[in-house]
Design a binder for these strands. Structure first.
Length: 575
RNA sequence: CGGGGCGUGGCGCAGUCUGGUAGCGCACCUGCUUUGGGAGCAGGGUGUCGGAGGUUCAAAUCCUCUCGCCCCGACCA
């Protein structure tokens, strides 16, 4: 490609709208432009990156035996009503009516569509296992789009759906995808980790997220320093505490109400009473699918709503509003306590161990001291309800855990029969018995993968693309275009590399050297070939790797071969 | 949805408090010089000041409404 005939509009200055590095650099390097919030045009060079990632994905998916197809973005409401998600999915689902006044939506994901296809086309166990995938534009009307391609409303996603006759097969399909994803992100040059994750709106029995490690990541992840356990913070299990051997030792003290005027928050109550937060119990009133539930966690712990939702088996979970809190507890917000509550009580395991603790008094400006489990109230169910803390140990091996941040670039789910059951995707097994297909689904954010690669690979001068993701593998910079020798040498190298299927960008613009160097650095092209008068006079050109500071001059005759070798070694280093 | 910030040429910004000819840098166009890390000089074009309404002799500036963008949060009592 000739720069002068191409379109890479770079910015010298950082656009005011961009906060995180990858977003800034994608705008500055001329990879993307914003149309409106969360919606971007992929400029030519940006599209090249996207296509490179897509092709790696395709290659690995095909290798894993998945079959590519392409489903519609337009989806009729009926299928979503059938799966139950028309009501459940919420406002992220972009809904509209067509000219016949029929409800429809733009697909944020395609479980319904693929399941509909499969239930019509697959009748026999002989047709499985099978895994269909597509690379397609999705639309999710995000609450808050941000960070450029990191969280857009319209974005390119690879989604795959596996169909198996039994659990064992489904697990195998899941493992194959796990493996394929590891290959894909490894080939993209990313430092990543697969972590256990919550299933969220997609549903299903278990899942893993593929996290690219980056401080600016939106997700918090924890990992064990001892074993291979790693999980999304909201998923990370907390080991139940070991119970004291003989009922706690210390005696129960007399229950005692205390006046706490306008003292509401954990912080206020603990400092007012001169106790530490782990002596207090927070009582949170929730509405789970229209039923009121009270959840108890220790004062210094944080309730994990994802866990509570999953534990209750609820579709939706919301914290009660002020009015409902008052109706339920008889007191304004800030004074709820478990004693005397008429609603279902669920409590975190840590509560079991506590003695003579403080709770709200269910009365304005009153808290209770020396409250005790079983004597003063009874808990319906205990569960792991809280967010893991650095003080907790690994739920698998008991080792020390560490916290980090990541960008979720891929997510795989074992769905089970959630959709096949709802949409009646059944097949006949060897005994002629009709049973639901076992499904799995697997997604990769293509644009987000490019953004994550930049987030993980950049310096003060710009992007340092891992070569498989880079828009071009090599850039050739003729510094003095008016010098015939320079121009011809650059053209020669350009041709030799192009003829050998190397993606080369020849910067044939009539620009000064500094401009070319800076743009090449900004765009992050892995190999830079500089052709200048002095070098050409001595039969030399200069080769510099974007990720290294040193450059070296090589004889012109060998240049093309050496460059190709450099390119190859960059790819090899990612195998 | 709540809070905060911002909308002035393609980009980055000043001007708004205190109303009075719309400015600066970069970019862009022309010419000359320059030519290995975002060149210099000279000349030039570029704006419905996000939009609507109002106040005023006069509005980028004051008032009202509205639209858009960015950031934080979204119930932790």
């Amino acid at each position: 490609m000739r720069y002068s005939k191409y379109f890479i509009p770079t910015y010298k200055e950082i656009p005011a709208e961009a906060e995180v590095t990858s977003h800034q650099l994608m705008l500055r390097a001329g990879l993307i432009r914003k149309l409106t919030s969360g919606i971007y045009t992929y400029l030519p060079a940006g599209l090249r990156c996207i296509k490179k990632v897509e092709n790696i994905i395709r290659d690995e998916m095909n290798r894993a035996g998945a079959i590519e197809l392409l489903m519609p973005a337009f989806q009729p409401a009926e299928l979503w009503q059938e799966s139950g998600r028309w009501d459940y999915y919420g406002r992220e689902l972009l809904r509209f009516k067509d000219r016949h006044n029929r409800d429809a939506c733009i697909g944020p994901t395609h479980e319904e569509i693929i399941t509909d296809l499969v239930r019509k086309e697959i009748q026999s166990y002989k047709q499985m296992p099978v895994n269909f995938y597509q690379i397609q534009t999705k639309f999710r009307d995000e609450i808050r789009p941000r960070f450029g391609l990191m969280r857009g409303r319209e974005f390119i996603m690879k989604d795959a759906y596996s169909f198996d006759v039994d659990d064992e097969g489904a697990n195998r399909s899941y493992e194959i995808m796990h493996e394929a994803y590891s290959n894909i992100f490894g080939r993209c040059g990313l430092k990543f980790r697969a972590v256990e994750a919550d299933t969220g709106a997609i549903g299903g029995s278990y899942s893993h997220e593929f996290m690219v490690l980056a401080d600016t990541g939106e997700d918090q992840i924890i990992s064990c320093t001892n074993c291979d356990y790693a999980a999304n913070l909201e998923k990370a299990e907390v080991k139940p505490p070991e119970l004291p051997s003989e009922n706690g030792g210390q005696p129960m003290l007399t229950l005692e109400p205390v006046d706490t005027p306008h003292i509401k928050s954990v912080e206020e109550v603990t400092s007012f009473l001169g106790i530490s937060p782990d002596r207090l119990i927070k009582t949170l009133i929730f509405v789970a699918d229209k039923t009121v539930v009270a959840a108890l966690v220790r004062g210094d712990h944080e309730l994990n709503e994802a866990k509570l939702t999953a534990f209750l088996g609820a579709q939706s979970l919301e914290l009660a509003d002020a009015q409902l809190v008052e109706e339920t507890t008889g007191a304004p917000i800030g004074f709820a306590g478990p004693a005397g509550l008429k609603v279902k009580l669920v409590a975190d395991h840590a509560i079991k161990k506590m003695k003579n603790f403080v709770t709200g008094g269910n009365k304005k400006d009153v808290h209770l001291k020396n409250v005790n489990l079983d004597r003063d109230f009874e808990v319906d169910l205990f569960a792991d309800l809280r967010i893991i803390t650095p003080q907790d140990s690994c739920p698998k091996c008991g080792g020390e855990i560490q916290f980090g941040r990541g960008i979720e670039v891929g997510h795989i789910f074992k769905l089970g029969t959630k959709y096949s059951h709802a949409l009646k995707a059944l097949f006949l097994d060897e005994q002629g018995k009709e049973i639901p297909i076992i499904m799995g689904c697997y997604g990769i954010g293509v644009g987000r993968t490019v953004a994550a690669a930049i987030e993980q690979n950049h310096d003060k001068d710009g992007i340092i693309f891992p070569i498989p993701v880079a828009p071009f593998e090599v850039t050739v910079l003729p510094l003095q275009l008016h010098e015939t020798a320079v121009k011809e040498t650059a053209e020669k190298i350009y041709k030799e590399l192009s003829d050998n299927d190397i993606d080369v960008l020849l910067d044939d613009r009539d620009e000064r050297a500094g401009v070319k160097f800076n743009d090449a650095d900004l765009l992050g092209i892995p190999v830079r070939v500089t052709v200048g008068v002095k070098g050409v006079k001595n039969g030399l050109v200069e080769i510099k790797m974007r990720g290294e500071s040193a450059s070296n001059s090589v004889p012109l005759q060998e240049a093309s071969a050496i460059i190709r070798e450099k390119v190859k070694s960059l790819y090899d280093s990612l195998k």
